[in-house]
Design a protein around this nucleic acid. Structure first.
Lengths: 224, 224
DNA sequence: TATTTTATTTGACCTACATCAAATTCGACT
DNA sequence: AGTCGAATTTGATGTAGGTCAAATAAAATA
């Protein structure tokens, strides 16, 4: 699949976690990442822009489109995550089951790449589900193929490293937020920095993603 | 610095996050990683073992030892994390300040590699501190040097990717635990799987690492 | 060994948030 | 428009764990 010249593996949501200040006090927050993630994404963009022609073509040729209906699963727990899904359009979520309850850990929008890292990197059964929340189309790159491509094109190996670093930074940021912000602050931050999350994601999933109960999130919204 | 043949960049604590069951019920836990991290470390070990001679020597030559006194900082907030620290002996912690309070995010033992990822990968001022908790010696590899080595030796680029993946998996596991276990369960798990943490780390830091107050941890210990 | 300092425990109280349950609003479909 | 089911809100109540303060215990230093 080719997108003639248009960057692939690009944005991973450019605005995600580009936070600058504490939403409670309004004063600069002692924030872990602040603009870090932003810089890191810029780095990735640059890297992508400077991929040589043959690499880009090899990469494009290795991918294919696939469409999913609303609520359809891109990945089921128990399956091996044999490919990475770059969202072309639509919205998806990643979640796991604990004690019979779904815990949503990540939300995916256009350009984001959805994988279950543990399953993908180890090629073992996933404990996570990836589910389309609305009709969705994704460009798919198979693990096996990408592994081979990385051997042939060092720049793709570098790309993989950068994206993994980015994910790790994102996880650090998430941990940071859970440790330092209360539910209201987390919601306000989301509202400020990723308003599309709030607009497009059903409350249940949003609450789970923010680590609060549905009822509490509802009260928070009423209060603000 | 050479360690004639002995693997470097190795363990990162082989037993870390190799959990199999729920400490509350004793029944198998719907656990995210279970043996995943273990497998991933095995993969890293294999990769290390199969580095070719020239690569290993280049790597060894690029490192040097450094010793730190108790409470001395390997990295201060505000500084750029210009190197990775592989602990040879001693114990260290990573923490940041929030609202004047220290939040400990990671504990390092022999063979672990201590860095501030955001600072290291972006070569920008760190928001985290890394501090020796007792007399410590570390083998140091400079960022700049390692970047160059990665260009010359693809296997080191692959190594970096694997280690970053490992760190991301570790972060996922940590998030998982915070979402699914209460303070007592987290402590019990730590006690079961990483007893050396409990033995060697002062309670204050341990509490912070577990995300509870000092007093609560003290009560948990009294209760068990 | 006595004395100060630091680490840990214990107690009393409080708050953010969960849980359960009922009410309401919103949408989809006939 | 009217009906059914799902999503969201609102209410009442419970609790894990935080905070502040005081009491020990342990460690360091004179």
């Amino acid at each position: 699949m080719r997108l003639n010249g248009k960057n692939r593996f690009p944005a991973i949501d450019f605005y995600r976690y580009f936070y600058g200040k504490d939403c409670k006090s309004g004063k600069p927050l002692n924030l872990y990442l602040v603009s870090l993630a932003h810089d890191h994404l810029t780095k990735i963009q640059h890297h992508l822009a400077s991929l040589d022609q043959s690499t880009r073509e090899a990469l494009d040729d290795a991918t294919q489109f696939k469409s999913y209906k609303k609520n359809e699963y891109l990945l089921l727990a128990g399956e091996v995550c044999k490919s990475g899904f770059q969202i072309v359009s639509g919205v998806a979520r990643k979640f796991y089951l604990n004690d019979g309850k779904e815990i949503t850990t990540e939300l995916f929008f256009a350009d984001d790449i959805a994988v279950s890292l543990e399953s993908y990197t180890g090629q073992k059964p996933s404990r996570e589900y990836i589910q389309a929340l609305e009709p969705l189309s994704a460009s798919i790159t198979y693990y096996q193929t990408f592994q081979e491509l990385k051997q042939q094109h060092k720049s793709l190996l570098e790309l993989d490293l950068m994206m993994t670093e980015y994910y790790a930074l994102w996880l650090e940021e998430r941990l940071f937020q859970f440790h330092t912000l209360d539910a209201t602050e987390r919601y306000k931050l989301l509202l400020e920095k990723q308003p599309h999350f709030v607009q497009q994601i059903p409350l249940t999933y949003l609450a789970s993603y923010l680590g609060v109960s549905l009822e509490t999130l509802s009260r928070i919204r009423a209060k603000i």
